[in-house]
């Protein structure tokens, strides 16, 4: 599953390292949703048990098996497709974000004052400073 997602990302990104980083970031969002859904169908004790099992996983494959088991618990036989759908949604959002950002920059270059103002204000924000420092 992860390989499939990475292949799709590579088609967009064209860079192995960036694709890998992006895969991890997207997986965070997917897992957030997964565990959030899990919390809706199981108790906190069971969630804690899953957490312990993941901690004590003997290998990466073992950990992946536990994640698959959680997905099966929530979504049933269609678990993998559900996760892939979530990945696809996030990838689509990313592409939209990139396009939006690109359009904003194009507007600013073409003399759109609103876009220029927006970008200039953003550069003075704390978030921009944090990101640029990293």
């Amino acid at each position: 599953m992860y390989d499939k997602v990475k292949e799709k990302l590579l088609l967009i990104v064209k860079d192995e390292n960036i694709a890998q980083e992006l895969l991890e970031l997207l997986t965070q969002d997917v897992y957030d949703k997964l565990f959030l859904d899990l919390s809706k169908v199981v108790t906190e004790v069971e969630i804690k048990q899953y957490e312990n099992r993941i901690k004590e996983a003997k290998s990466i494959e073992h950990a992946k098996t536990i994640i698959d088991e959680i997905a099966y618990t929530i979504y049933g036989t269609n678990a993998e497709n559900e996760l892939l759908k979530e990945y696809a949604r996030l990838i689509s959002e990313l592409e939209n974000d990139l396009n939006n950002a690109f359009n904003l920059i194009q507007k600013a270059k073409q003399g759109d004052t609103q876009a220029q103002q927006l970008l200039q204000d953003t550069k003075q924000s704390n978030l921009y400073q944090q990101v640029s420092q990293n």
């Binding site: 974000d97 990139l98 950002a101 920059i105 970008l119 953003t122 990101v131 640029s132 990293n134």
Partner: peptide
């Protein structure tokens, strides 16, 4: 922050623009 900087890198590579501009545009988006 990681997501912003990563997307800014991608934007920089694909659109051939400065990373600072890409960062700010991604943050806005």
């Amino acid at each position: 922050q990681q997501l912003i900087s990563l997307l800014a890198k991608m934007l920089e590579q694909q659109a051939k623009i400065e990373i600072s501009l890409a960062n700010s545009a991604i943050i806005v988006t």
